[in-house]
């Protein structure tokens, strides 16, 4: 079955071989180092590293803020995707192109720019200050940064589905007497839902691991506004390699689970809409 000379197109052995070697050297072997290192720790060591109050507080912040940011993006991302596909308005092409900015803008740049805006002397921070709302240098800052970096995901998963949606469905709904809102709610939204959920999951997964944009705006106060990736860095800087690795392995396991969920969601989207994402 693997006889190379039995294949019509050449290069199977070479290309697959190179792929596997490169994948192993760059990704798999280094990643396995995390779990091997963690496995050398005793149970008590492990628990005290990953369940210390400061670390647990960081999980709560990281996952809580990531979830909330992804939810915000699900709502507004759907709105933007709808606006960009269904309406014509001046500047639409430019807005469409700029949606991907968070993918292209280095996270450190995003971090300092958001801090400049949301600090109490910044453009938006100054507006909110009199209302007693403080965003930068606290948990709300984390939320803002995570919302920024997750913004394109929902738009870009929902948009193609919306574009491919044949007008016939809504025409049918209208001919059967449905209002626009009913047509959206009962016909369009169920079609979009898997893609929306996929976008949400992608934004969430991205936010959980995010570091660069958050640390500038978060204030990084232990127990209050310290995210888990920062905990890893702090432990590393204190030469606590075991502690850093233990926390990293928790994050890795969660990443893998999210990857599985996302793969499942994408398969669902593909089945529902007949297109691959």
């Amino acid at each position: 079955m693997f006889g190379v000379n039995k294949r019509v197109l050449p290069g199977f052995g070479l290309s697959l071989g190179f792929t596997l070697v490169y994948l192993s050297l760059i990704v798999l072997i280094p990643l396995s180092a995390v779990f091997l290192k963690t496995s050398t720790m005793s149970w008590d060591e492990l628990v005290s590293a990953v369940a210390a109050p400061r670390v647990v507080a960081s999980y709560k912040l990281t996952f809580g803020a990531s979830f909330l940011a992804a939810a915000i993006n699900a709502v507004f991302g759907l709105l933007l995707a709808w606006g960009l596909t269904r309406y014509t308005f001046p500047g639409r092409k430019i807005v469409d192109a700029l949606i991907d900015l968070p993918f292209a803008l280095p996270t450190a740049v995003a971090g300092i720019a958001l801090t400049a805006i949301y600090a109490k002397n910044g453009w938006i921070g100054a507006l909110l200050e009199p209302l007693g709302i403080k965003i930068a240098f606290g948990p709300p800052g984390v939320l803002v940064a995570l919302t920024f970096i997750g913004l394109p995901f929902v738009v870009r998963t929902v948009q193609p589905v919306l574009e491919d949606l044949e007008t016939e469905y809504e025409e049918a709904a209208a001919s059967l007497g449905a209002t626009r809102w009913q047509a959206f709610q009962r016909v369009v939204f169920p079609t979009l839902f898997p893609a929306l959920l996929t976008g949400f999951a992608l934004a969430f997964a991205r936010a959980v691991g995010e570091y660069g944009s958050v640390i500038f705006i978060a204030g990084n106060i232990p127990m209050v506004s310290e995210i888990t990736p920062l905990i890893i860095i702090t432990k590393l800087e204190q030469f606590d390699y075991k502690g850093a690795t233990a926390v990293a392995s928790v994050m890795l396991v969660i990443s893998f689970l999210l990857l599985l969920v996302i793969n499942g969601l994408q398969a669902w989207t593909a089945r529902r809409t007949g297109r691959a994402i």
């Binding site: 995390v34 691991g209 570091y211 590393l236 994050m251």
Partner: peptide, 13 residues
Amino acid sequence: SVSPVVAGLIYVL
């Protein structure tokens, strides 16, 4: 899906 911080850490390890 791996946090960039973890990506750096693995090479330190």
